[in-house]
Design a binder for these strands. Structure first.
Lengths: 295, 295
DNA sequence: CTGTTAGCGCATTCAA
DNA sequence: TTGAATGCGCTAACAG
């Protein structure tokens, strides 16, 4: 009978089941090279579990009071996955009030109202600090992400803490901050390295910032790692390309994506429970942008 | 009355209007740095017109007989936007048979059954050839994309045609081909430049392939553009980064995205008509990876 | 112009 | 087991 290409009508079905088999993915700026790999991983997880993925791109690195909720609620989805929300975002509360299944991935908001999965940014940043200190660097610059993101706050804390534990410090003059973008790294490094007593190493808030820093170093006709060592965070695939070859801290993105999707699907299929938090270990990836100072 | 947060139920509404206000976006591999900018542009166009965007990532560079249709039909969308379909894909016919609004963007299939928008790949590639010839290169290598993509076929044709018009040629031994990936460029350049009579310039099927070629050149300890000139295609933002600084052929992606979305929305709102084709002009972007041979 | 009603295509219940 | 009936929440057509 159904040989003539019958397709059940999804609208009618979801009208009765009150399920759409579609999840919403909210992210801050898909243009940032960090995301595609995440989106890829998330998509294939969702697909294998029978869910579609509706994209909402906030278009700036601030998922603040942009309101993706209205958009999604009127498109009726079963759950929401937030990637890289900001700390001050009211999204957590709003979603909890709606009783909507939700998971925060990579970054989280201040109040743990929903499931969260992220990596151990503190210890990852600490391991980066340890590497630079062990190599003999004493004057280290810091170019961080935005202060309203949990990743930046925790990476800063882990990094600075380790430095201080060794009896050193990073003076204000050697700190810069901005969006997780190439430009932030470029401007930051230009400023820090152009000063009269420049640092011999830079810890960058993520890989994309580090790429900007590398470009600034090129611009200043200095060389990496001889004149300056550089470390990033994330280990996106581009960081392994030969011309970049960035030392960085790897986040286990595929596993994180799988976990986040699992939690979300569990929420929609088995009902909401108490908020859960999953933390993943990072791994230092030693490549070519770090060395003993002057070597 | 509706102060208590009333939201119309999208499923019920679309049951009666037979519209979901959602479009499907099919792409071959979101991990390829070429796509995020497109996705971003498409998303904001759709959003501004009141449409959501459901993502389907084919996960390999081959949108062949992977069947996103089943996935989408069971998620009920109003129209489909295919980015980078392959020539041999049966998608065009399948979609046309379903009477589903669809647009092919960037690449197209053999039969023009739906609206299509792409750039003038032939003349873009010809302008790249002209640049290399004018600089004095006579031995030029070609690393193309897959032969079942319209972009690769047309770029090859435009490039080779211009070379021949000047009385030169690109022998088989100087041609390589593979997926639009970093690895294709890396392996291809390693092979071509490692031969006994290596070319002095390489035309790459797209920027990502060119990045791989640049890495191979680094690996071989040769220098760009002194030993080898390199040209890419697309002009994705990374190509403008200082450490890359790639000479390339720009496609006007934002305009192309706007047009594609416009055509698709027109189809769903005003009914299907005869297939339309929109072609966009490219622009040569002269940067630092090209020069007179040996200079 | 406001108020009422039928029906979109399913899943689920209940009757046979 | 199989078959018919109800209603999910809207929109559109129609009646008042």
């Amino acid at each position: 009978v159904k040989r003539l290409g019958y397709r059940p009508n999804a609208a009618a079905r979801s009208l009765i089941t009150s399920r759409t088999q579609t999840m919403g993915l909210v992210l801050s700026d898909i243009t940032n090279p960090f995301y595609p790999f995440l989106v890829d991983a998330l998509h294939s997880e969702f697909k294998s579990l029978g869910y579609g993925m509706l994209l909402f791109n906030a278009e700036s690195d601030e998922i603040g009071d942009v309101d993706p909720l209205g958009h999604f609620l009127s498109h009726s989805i079963d759950g929401l996955l937030f990637v890289s929300a900001t700390l001050d975002s009211s999204l957590g509360k709003a979603v909890a009030e709606q009783g909507l299944p939700a998971v925060f991935l990579n970054r989280h908001t201040e109040d743990a109202t929903s499931d969260r999965v992220f990596s151990d940014n503190r210890s990852g940043a600490a391991s980066a600090a340890r590497l630079l200190l062990d190599l003999g660097h004493e004057k280290i610059g810091l170019i961080s992400g935005p202060s309203n993101t949990s990743t930046a706050v925790e990476r800063d804390a882990g990094f600075l803490n380790e430095i201080e534990r060794r009896g050193l410090e990073v003076p204000e003059a050697l700190r810069r901050r901005g969006p997780y973008s190439h430009r932030t790294g470029y401007d930051g490094a230009l400023h820090l390295l152009g000063s009269e007593d420049p640092p011999t190493a830079l810890f960058c808030g993520n890989d994309v910032i580090a790429f900007g820093a590398l470009d600034a170093i090129e611009e200043l006709q200095m060389s990496v790692p001889k004149d300056v060592s550089v470390i990033g965070f994330d280990d996106i695939p581009m960081s392994g390309w030969l011309r970049i070859n960035l030392t960085t801290v790897r986040q286990p993105l595929p596993a994180m994506a799988r976990t986040a999707v699992g939690l979300l699907v569990d929420q929609v299929e088995n009902g909401l429970g108490d908020p859960r938090t999953e933390v993943f270990a990072t791994e230092l990836v030693y490549r070519g942008t770090t060395s003993i100072p002057g070597d």
